[in-house]
Structures are given as structure tokens and as C-alpha cells.
């Protein structure tokens, strides 16, 4: 394993030590959320956008298991359908930022010189710019929709991955085995793809899983501000925003449930991701 340590939050580390049951629990939760998201169209009891104003702000009942929001929409159906956008967005952010970040990090560490300076200063420039502001700026330019904020956040998260990758590759390329492959006549490209990237992958993937949680929170925050996700699309962040009026009316369920879904999903992804990365790092291959 590499010497570089991941920025880990202490609380999560402490939870992780009592690992087996918690890990299983989180794994089950992640599987459940993903399954709900994938199978949403067949699972929802009601159309998530069907308005039943006569039932507005109704509590849990046989027909609406988790109650009804202020606009008379079924909370359970919106939660299940909302899992799709709420997971797809962060997934896009993580995939794009990981691929691009690894590419930038490997190139700047391997080539060094002016290219390293350009890429490193460039990513530092992005670092200096708050991701949320960047996303809000892009949304205000391109209007609503999931793609624009996802791309903006992916760019905002890219420096985390590229800086980590750059430092890992710098350490890895000093290892004699890399010089051995160079002497053997392998191209830098082959050495990077076959040996250096697999060597650093577990650490980068662990960072990316943590980024998944942060991106989920960021995207939910954007939706909460009414940006990004179109108004009628069910989305957890959007549901918290819509639930504000329900809380004021004394029916907090339609706002609290998506909050809980966000928090639990972020924690579950972090625990599962870190555990998985640890296993990859320790595995005999």
C-alpha cells in the first residue's frame, strides 16, 4: 500500500472499527437504495407527480404508507423515484472527476516540467473556487437540468482526485520497479496503465467514494436551493425544499424522510467504499 493517507473523518473511522455488522448493514442499505433506484418504475405505489390535494399533508395511512406532502403527492413514491436522480447525479460527478482527475494527475506527475506546472496551477485555480458557486454559476448560465450541475461539480471535484493521484504517482514512479520496466523497454504509457495506475487505484477509489458522499450532499443542496433538478423531478434535495412549508404546518414527515435518506446514503456509501478500498489494498493478487 502507498504511504499517502486519506483525509478521513474521525467519527467514521471510529464507527468502522466495530466493523463487521456495520459494514454489512451499510452494504445492505446501499444495495437497497440502488435496487430501489433501478426498479423505481415498477415499485412505486403511486405516480410520484400525481396531485391529490384533498389528501395534502396527510399522515401515514394504508394507502400512503409514508404520508402525503403539501401538494398532495405520495412521499414514498417520491422517495423511491428520487433515489434515481439523487444517485445518478453523484455517480456522474464521481465517474467524470475520477477519470479526468487520474488522467491529469498521472500526466502531470509523469511528464513534470512545464506541463506539470500548467496542470497543477490550473487545478489549484479550480480549488480556489467553491464548487457550489461554480455549479450555481453554470446552472444560471445553462438553465436547469442535471447535466450542467453534474459537470460543474465534476470539475470542482477534479482537483481532489488529481492532486492525490499526482502525489501518489510521484511516489510510485520513484520505485525501482518502474525503472526496471523502463530499462526493459516498456513505454511510459504501458508502465502507467499496467503498473502505476493499478498500484494507486485503491487509494484513489477510496477518495472517490468519499467524494460520492460530498457530491450527493452538494447536489441535494443545489436542489434544495431550487437549482439544477427541474421542479417536478422527484429528488431528495428538492423534497426537503418542498417540505419546508409542511414543517411550518406541523407535518415534518415529507421533509425529514428525504433528509434521513440523504444522510444515511452518504454514511453508507462512505463506510462501504472505505471498507472495499481497504480490501482491495490488502488483497493478494
Amino acid at each position: 500500500m502507498s504511504t499517502a493517507a486519506l483525509p478521513r473523518r474521525r467519527v467514521l473511522a471510529r464507527i468502522r472499527t466495530s466493523r463487521a455488522p456495520l459494514n454489512l448493514l451499510c452494504l445492505a442499505f446501499v444495495a437497497l437504495v440502488v435496487a430501489l433506484a433501478v426498479l423505481a418504475p415498477w415499485l412505486v405505489p403511486h405516480d410520484p407527480n400525481a396531485v391529490d390535494l384533498g389528501n395534502a399533508l396527510g399522515g401515514p395511512s394504508a394507502d400512503h404508507l409514508l404520508g402525503v406532502d403539501a401538494s398532495g403527492r405520495d412521499t414514498l413514491s417520491r422517495l423511491i423515484t428520487g433515489a434515481r436522480t439523487s444517485l445518478l447525479g453523484p455517480l456522474g460527478v464521481v465517474v467524470f472527476s475520477t477519470l479526468a482527475g487520474v488522467a491529469v494527475g498521472v500526466v502531470s506527475a509523469w511528464r513534470g516540467g512545464w506541463l506539470d506546472s500548467v496542470l497543477s496551477r490550473g487545478t489549484e485555480l479550480i480549488f480556489a473556487f467553491p464548487g457550489m458557486l461554480l455549479a450555481i454559476l453554470v446552472v444560471s448560465l445553462y438553465g436547469e437540468g442535471l447535466t450542467a450541475p453534474v459537470l460543474a461539480l465534476a470539475v470542482a471535484y477534479l482537483p481532489y482526485v488529481s492532486r492525490l493521484t499526482r502525489s501518489l504517482v510521484l511516489a510510485e514512479r520513484e520505485r525501482p520497479y518502474v525503472a526496471a520496466y523502463q530499462v526493459q523497454g516498456h513505454s511510459a504509457w504501458q508502465i502507467c496503465l499496467r503498473h502505476v495506475v493499478p498500484a494507486i487505484a485503491p487509494v484513489v477509489l477510496a477518495q472517490s467514494t468519499i467524494n460520492f458522499g460530498y457530491a450527493l450532499i452538494d447536489l441535494a443542496g443545489l436542489s434544495f436551493l431550487g437549482l439544477g433538478v427541474p421542479a417536478l423531478t422527484p429528488d431528495w434535495g428538492r423534497m426537503v425544499f418542498d417540505g419546508e412549508s409542511a414543517i411550518q404546518s406541523g407535518y415534518p414527515l415529507s421533509a425529514i424522510l428525504p433528509c434521513a435518506a440523504i444522510v444515511l446514503t452518504v454514511v453508507a456509501f462512505n463506510v462501504v467504499g472505505e471498507r472495499w478500498a481497504d480490501q482491495v489494498a490488502r488483497r493478494d493478487r
Partner: peptide, 15 residues
């Protein structure tokens, strides 16, 4: 020309 390195613990990719 090929080279055999000093430290066989470091000159092979552990994976």
C-alpha cells in the same frame, strides 16, 4: 543492456 537492481524487494512490481 539490461540491469539487475540492488534490492530485489523493490525492483519487482508487488502486484
Amino acid at each position: 543492456v539490461q540491469l539487475v537492481f540492488q534490492d530485489p524487494y523493490l525492483s519487482l512490481d508487488p502486484r
